[in-house]
Nucleic acid binder design. Structure first.
Length: 595
RNA sequence: GGUCCGAUAGCUCAACUGGAUAGAGCAUCAGCCUUCUAAGCUGACGGUUCGGGGUUCGAGUCCCUGUCGGAUCACCA
């Protein structure tokens, strides 16, 4: 039984009976704290049907509901707002049905499939803070769709080819002396990243030197020997030169090993990986087909373009005059390949930063022009940049926050603060370590996910390691607290069944509030997926935990003499712990048994 | 310059998509551990929702306009 549905239908009945009208949009909202009640009907829009003043309309509906619905016990009217008080018996029934439903918080399978792309790094540099937001977001949105009944495929596209990786390769060849992750003790992605920096340093020095000799800036940038080497390697790679391909494979291999370790610690996973080196040729084919069909056009120099002026955009290049593909070409190929691999998906969600909004607008238009119906179901989950207190992250200024380092710092800080509180003496070393990791990552993920994804956000390191207030650890702590209650109940052999709870006669305000929040869980799961926003769940989990703590503070569970109330309180605690756990799991965060 | 985002308490963020006296956390101050975990709870302080017009029963939310930030408009990815 869904309380809100029942209430809405009772209100409809009342409107029909009283005013002989049907209203498609019943405006129901939570009641403000200062008034009695939980649900409020906004009556202003109903005055046209009722032909009464808002207050009179509210009163009429209120009276009707009290007399006929069996849900509402009393009401009050403030201006045009009808504040409804739900009977405790109804609350008890609502809770009994939630408690009996083991799958509460997961909607039934809907037979639909969807694909979520996230992460999608370049292979020349280690992952950083921006990737963390991307990964946590993508992972969470995928989990949200699962909870909404979808079959979800998590994928990424790895940008494994192009000039960027050739730069690392060139620098390694020149200065590497055969260094490997094994010989250096460096993580593979870090090692390759080191040579990317090395490239940049030498490149700049060489270009500067040339300029001092009187070469123009543009020319110097082309003439720098290390750049020539990188470009040469790119051409050799495209020509499948064995030595170059071998080095490319080796260095990318190092990067993947490094990434795997980072992904593992982040707790994200992928069903299938796509590599641009595999998809760019397909994209090229599709573009050439498009030229034949007259969807795209070729210029005299041989370059291929799409004309999007009719859509209010520009002309956009799809193949260079030398016939090589650009970023867009690859993305066309990747998209098509994915729908071949997973024919049942209805669409794709691309988790990519908002600096690429224009790119995806163009991509979806092109796919539509190529005749793919599913282009309409492709969505760019565009998220804002992560700024530091000092401003944007800039690799040149060394302000990039490394993903591995950050996760380690969070775990260390969690350890420091946990030890200081001294509550975990009975845990083994291994358990403790696991707990620090859970808390540190929980804090980090929650910090990055609690903000609306669309908005740019500020990452303040000092604030992110906070474990009090609106944070992941606060919620984890609440869960651990409830688990302690449940362990005690178990040891006292207190077992609650949905049937026991029907005899419940009255509720305390804090119980009613907690129960009300609990009843909103599935709505929140729908809303979060619809808006592609884990922040909805983060806020919900926080509200729920906060409300539980208030209940916990006000009411002593085990001092209750009435056995039905005692059982109810244990059962309510159980259901809330479970909702907290599921919510946090939707964010990719685990919750501990004790902390 | 064109297009698209954003601006809410000292700071970081909410506000159920047009509803009531705009809410949390942090910070500051004052209370609460003999009780189920004080990573908690209660209270105080804190607002011209960037400025100016408009739409209507009602605007932080919609429209116009100005200011300030950001992104984007490559034969880069």
């Amino acid at each position: 039984m869904n309380l809100e549905h029942s209430l809405r239908s009772e209100i409809q009945k009342a409107i029909t009976a009283l005013f002989n009208a049907t209203i498609d949009q019943v405006q129901l909202q939570p009641t403000n704290q200062e008034f009695e009640g939980s649900h409020t009907l906004v009556c202003f829009p109903l005055t046209r049907a009722s032909k009464l003043k808002p207050e009179e309309t509210a009163k009429a509906i209120g009276d009707y509901l009290v007399q006929h619905s069996g849900i509402v016990t009393r009401y009050n009217v403030v201006k045009g707002f009808l504040n409804l008080v739900i009977s405790d018996r109804t609350w008890a029934e609502t809770f009994a049905s939630i408690y009996a439903n083991k799958n509460y918080g997961s909607l039934p399978a809907n037979g639909k499939e969807i694909m979520v792309e996230y992460s999608s790094p370049n292979t020349n540099k280690p992952l950083h803070l921006g990737h963390l937001r991307n990964n946590f977001l993508g992972y969470s949105v995928a989990e949200l769709y699962k909870a909404n009944g979808y079959n979800v495929h998590k994928v990424q596209i790895i940008n494994d080819r192009g000039i960027h990786i050739c730069k690392s390769m060139a620098a390694w060849k020149l200065y590497g002396n055969g260094e490997t992750p094994q010989s250096s003790g460096l993580k593979g992605d870090k090692l390759v990243g080191k040579y990317y920096v090395e490239f940049d340093k030498n490149y700049k020095a060489q270009a500067k030197e040339l300029q001092e000799k009187g070469v123009s800036e543009a020319e110097a940038e082309k003439q720098a020997p290390i750049m020539k080497l990188a470009v040469d390697m790119l051409q050799k790679w495209e020509a499948k030169d064995p030595g170059t391909v071998q080095l490319w494979k080796t260095m990318n291999g190092w990067v993947y090993e490094g990434f795997d370790a980072t992904y593992k610690r982040m707790g994200v996973d992928f069903e299938k990986l796509y590599y641009e080196s595999d998809t760019y040729l397909l994209g090229k084919e599709e573009v050439l087909k498009g030229v034949e069909k007259g969807i795209f056009f070729k210029k005299e120099d041989g370059s291929v373009w799409v004309d999007l002026t009719a859509d209010g955009l520009d002309q956009k290049v799809l193949l260079r005059s030398d016939g090589t593909s650009v970023y867009m070409t690859q993305d066309i190929g990747t998209a098509i390949l994915r729908f071949r691999d997973f024919p049942k998906i209805e669409g794709q969600i691309y988790t990519v930063g908002n600096e690429q909004e224009y790119h995806f607008k163009v991509l979806f238009l092109i796919l539509g022009k190529l005749g793919y119906e599913w282009a309409k179901k492709c969505y760019h989950l565009s998220y804002g940049m992560v700024d530091l207190p000092s401003g944007k992250m800039k690799s040149r200024e060394g302000t990039v926050v490394d993903a591995d380092d950050l996760m380690q710092e969070m775990a260390d800080e969690a350890e420091r603060q946990t030890r200081e509180l001294g509550k975990i003496d009975e845990l083994s070393d291994a358990e403790s370590k696991q707990l620090f990791e859970m808390i540190g990552l929980g804090a980090l993920k929650f910090f990055l996910l609690k903000v609306d994804p669309k908005k740019r956000m500020l990452f303040d390191p000092n604030e992110s390691i906070q474990l009090q207030g609106f944070t992941g650890p606060f919620i984890q702590y609440t869960h651990a607290r409830i688990r302690a209650i449940l362990r005690k109940a178990e040891s006292m052999n207190i077992v609650s069944t949905a049937n026991d709870l029907k005899g419940l006669s009255s509720l305390e305000p804090s119980e009613r509030e907690a129960l009300h929040l609990l009843s909103l869980f599935e709505n929140k799961i729908r809303e979060a997926a619809k808006d592609y926003s884990p922040a909805v769940i983060a806020n919900y989990a926080y509200d729920l935990a906060k409300q539980y703590n208030q209940f916990y503070q006000n009411i002593s569970i085990f001092n209750e003499a009435d056995p039905v109330k005692l059982k109810f309180r244990v059962a309510l605690s159980d259901s809330i712990a479970s909702a907290i756990k599921k919510s946090m799991n939707l964010l990719g965060i685990s919750v501990p048994e004790r902390m």
